[in-house]
Amino acid sequence: MKTLVDHLAQYAAYHRDRRNIISHFIGIPMIVLAVTVLLSRPGIPLAGLWLSPAALAALLSTLFYLRLDVRFGLLMGGLLGLCLWFSAGLAMGSTALWLSTGLGLFVVGWIIQFIGHFYEGRKPAFVDDLTGLIIGPLFVAAEAAFLLGLRREVEDEVVQRAGPTCIRQRKVI
């Protein structure tokens, strides 16, 4: 089974341009929230919680992240919990609000992603490996931790395998 560094390095190899990484800080949270919103119906209230397909997906995702790394797993579980809380409110509202919010976030998030990959000059990681879809949110969390000076040992290993980040210069003729 792949380790945390294996997954992050493989994903990072597709994301070395800083503009692409920045686009992921916006696009991926929008997509994760959109999927949570869209999966929040059908649902039932139980003991103060909204149980839905989104809750099951968040639980399974959190277990996957915890298997890779306890600290990042707890962070991702907390972030997914916030998405569930927000989504439950929308799910209990009107169908128009729930659906337009979910679809709007999804479409705009993917547009932002593809703009980032235009700068990168490389296709998204999930095209070659579908696990990129679950690693993407973890990559954003890890990059945020690295920017805060946390988990340097993980960052060093990822950079050693994937290479440093850069901004590509376009040739002007």
Score class of each variant (00 low, 15 high):
Arg161Val: 12
Ile28Trp: 03
Asp6Ala: 10
Gly48Gln: 05
Phe126Cys: 00
Lys123Asn: 09
Ala96His: 03
Gly43Arg: 00
Thr62Gln: 04
Val127Cys: 00
Leu90Lys: 06
Leu51Arg: 07
Thr3Glu: 14
Val70Thr: 15
Leu99Thr: 12
Arg71Met: 12
Ile134His: 06
Ala91Ile: 05
Leu130Val: 14
Gly109Thr: 11
Ala145Asn: 06
Ile28Ser: 00
Tyr11Lys: 10
Gly43Gln: 04
His7Trp: 00
Leu39His: 05
Glu143Leu: 09
Tyr119Gly: 02
Lys171Arg: 15
Asn20Phe: 01
Met1Arg: 12
Leu97Glu: 10
Leu133Lys: 06
Ser40Asp: 08
Phe139Asn: 05
Val158Tyr: 02
Arg161Cys: 11
Ala162Trp: 09
Trp110His: 14
Trp110Arg: 04
Val37Pro: 03
Gln160Thr: 15
Gly104Arg: 03
Gly78Leu: 10
Thr95Met: 10
Leu150Thr: 08
Arg16Gln: 14
Leu74Asn: 07
Leu38Met: 11
Arg71Val: 15
Ala142Ser: 13
Asp17Cys: 10
Thr95Gly: 02
Val159Cys: 03
Ile28Met: 01
Ala9Cys: 12
Ile173Asp: 14
Ile26Asp: 03
Leu60Thr: 15
Ile26Trp: 00
Leu97Tyr: 00
Leu82Asn: 11
Phe106Asn: 11
Thr62Phe: 02
Leu74Thr: 12
Gly78Asp: 13
Ala142Cys: 09
Phe64Val: 09
Gln169Cys: 08
Leu4Cys: 12
Gly121Tyr: 05
Gln160Glu: 15
Leu99Gly: 00
Val107Glu: 13
Ala96Leu: 09
Arg152Cys: 04
Ile31Asp: 01
Ala54Thr: 07
Gly89Phe: 02
Leu84Arg: 07
Cys166Lys: 15
Val172Thr: 15
Ile31Ser: 03
Ile112Phe: 01
Val70Gly: 06
Ala96Asn: 06
Ser52Tyr: 02
Thr165Val: 12
Leu90Thr: 08
Tyr119Phe: 15
Pro42Ser: 11
Leu66Met: 12
Gly89Trp: 01
Gln10Lys: 08
Ala91Arg: 10
Asp17Tyr: 01
Gly121Pro: 04
Ile134Lys: 04
Phe118Trp: 14
Thr36Ser: 12
Val172Glu: 14
Lys123Ile: 01
Gly116Lys: 03
Phe114Glu: 02
Gly81Lys: 10
Gly102Tyr: 00
Val127Leu: 08
Val108Asn: 02
Leu148Tyr: 03
Phe114Thr: 05
Arg67Met: 08
Glu155His: 10
Pro137His: 05
